[in-house]
Structures are given as structure tokens and as C-alpha cells.
Design a protein around this nucleic acid. Structure first.
Lengths: 146, 146
DNA sequence: TTTAATTAGTTGCATAACTAACTATATGCC
DNA sequence: GGCATATAGTTAGTTATGCAACTAATTAAA
């Protein structure tokens, strides 16, 4: 039944997009409510830097699944906000090490709490088992296409 | 274990975004390879019109989970491409009925085949049962946040 | 060693998103 | 009828994405 097969997949792709859009919008809204004036895209870059400060832009591309121009401009804007600094590498002058400022470090705790609460809102009523299975499906989709 | 709870959710939100981005990119790439020069966002609007021609812009907002300005510009661009026309309603002059042109109707068959193939690529190796369960999780997330 | 190929990052252009403010039409209420 | 309110759609400004073309620095090869 190829037609029915498609209908399942079709709905799946729309649902994936709508769920991720819904999560993003809610997270942005919750940031704003707490007086945090950064975009979720900027936050996602900071998120990777909190895990490993001083990543190169290329490393940020890989970690955040974005292309180089996107990272260039996100880093531009984060620099304007005085949340990161570009420090050019001494061993390879093509590379920038992106480093967090103190202001950015102070954001970590507050924003992680907001993100945690937002995800609890999103996953309300979903069992841990179902979350795990959904995650592995999403991972498989990503692996199939990346 | 609230920390562990968060880690699951955290990964989940990233995976949702990455999977939906990956699907979108692949679909766009496959369109281009077949010589179809529309964006996936434009395609998604056409998709709803193929199901019900003559929707108002507000109806398109609801169906495609976008806000009004987004639909205004998508319809602008689709009109430039001569794929839709705005026809103002005779009963309510605030409303536009968005109607498909013949060129748009011709795109339906080809693009649906490409979309179907793309989703088969995306869901390769995922069982029908897992797709259903993942879909219901995504639906729940959407319902929780919309 | 000097030329070719690769890698890191930037810039330009088009499209799309969100927010807020706006116009125009329609509806409800007194 | 006339005023307040709600609804449909548009416009403006900022941010972000994708793609292609570009510069500068590094590495590999002839």
C-alpha cells in the first residue's frame, strides 16, 4: 500500500516540523518572560560553548548543524551583545577560537532552568519510554539524511 | 533524578530540530535536482491548497502553522511565480481567496512523488510501528504547546 | 620552491521567520 | 445611526537560513 505508506511519512514530516517550531516558539517566549533578550539560535550556540569553551567556528558548525555563514553571523551578533569574543588562533591564523565572556557564563544557569521547564511543558504526559523511542526514530532520520 | 530527566528532554528538543532541518534540506535538494525551483515553504502552502483550493490567508495560517505576515509574503512570492492568485471575496471584502493556477496544479503530481521518495529516504530502516509511536509523541508535544 | 588544492572564515543576495504597528472592512452594542 | 471592538491582511525592522562566490592561510605536490 504505497499510498498509505506515504500518508504516514507525510504526516510524520509535518509533525516533526510543527513540533520543533512549537518548542522553539515556546522557549523563545519563556526566555522573554524571564527578561532574557537573546534568540534561541544564539542560545544554542552558547549552549555548545558552555560544554566546550573556545571552539572554532567550524566546530560550532558541526555541533549545531549549521553552515559556515550562519555561524559567522550568529557569532557577529553574539559579539555585538558582548557574550563571546573571537580570538584568532596562534597556531593556525585562519581559525578563530570563540570564547565566552563573563556575561555569557552568567546566563548559563538561568537559561538552562528555563529550557528544562520548557521541555517539561513540551513532554507533559509523555512516558520516558516513549521519549526514548521517539528520540531514536529522530536520530535514525537524522542519520539517514545527514 | 531531575537532572537525568532534563538530559532526555534536552536531547529530544535538539533531535526534533535537527531531524526537521535535515528533512527540509533534503526535500529542497531533491526538488532542485528534479528542476523544481520553489522553496519547501512555498511547496507547503501549495500542499494545503491542493487539498482545498481557495482557502483564505487566515485559513492558510492555521493549516501551515505560520503567522499572517509569513503567509502574506509566501503568497506574494507564489503570485510572482504565477502559481497562485489572490481573489478578494465578494461576501467579505477583507478576505482573499487564494486560488491555484494551472501551472501550480501541474506541479502537484511531480512534487508529491519527490516528497514521498524523500520521506522514504528519511524513514529508511524505521518500522511502521515506531513511526506511529513517534508521530503520537510529536502530536502530544504540539498539543502541549500550541 | 613555487604552484595547486584544501581549509577557515566572510560577504552578498534571496527567502523566510517573529514582533509590532498599521489600514480597511465587518460586527456588536447603545 | 454611530462608536467600540474584532478580524483580514499588509508593512517595517531585525534575525536567521541557504547558496554561491570570495579572501586568506595552510598543506601537498611537482
Amino acid at each position: 500500500m504505497p499510498n498509505n505508506q506515504f500518508k504516514r511519512g507525510e504526516l510524520y514530516s509535518f509533525m516533526t516540523g510543527m513540533a520543533s517550531t512549537a518548542i522553539a516558539r515556546r522557549l523563545q517566549k519563556n526566555f522573554k518572560q524571564e527578561g532574557i533578550e537573546i534568540t534561541i539560535e544564539q542560545w544554542s550556540v552558547l549552549y555548545h560553548l558552555w560544554k566546550k569553551d573556545g571552539m572554532s567556528q567550524q566546530e560550532l558548525c558541526n555541533a549545531s548543524f549549521r553552515d559556515k555563514p550562519s555561524i559567522t553571523r550568529l557569532v557577529d551578533n553574539l559579539e555585538k551583545l558582548k557574550l563571546v569574543k573571537r580570538i584568532s588562533s596562534s597556531t593556525d591564523r585562519r581559525m578563530n577560537m570563540i570564547t565566552l565572556t563573563d556575561a555569557a557564563k552568567k546566563l548559563q544557569e538561568r537559561t538552562m532552568v528555563i529550557a528544562s521547564n520548557t521541555l517539561n511543558e513540551a513532554l507533559e504526559g509523555v512516558s520516558g519510554n516513549d521519549i526514548e523511542r521517539a528520540k531514536s526514530v529522530l536520530q535514525q532520520v537524522y542519520d539517514n539524511l545527514k
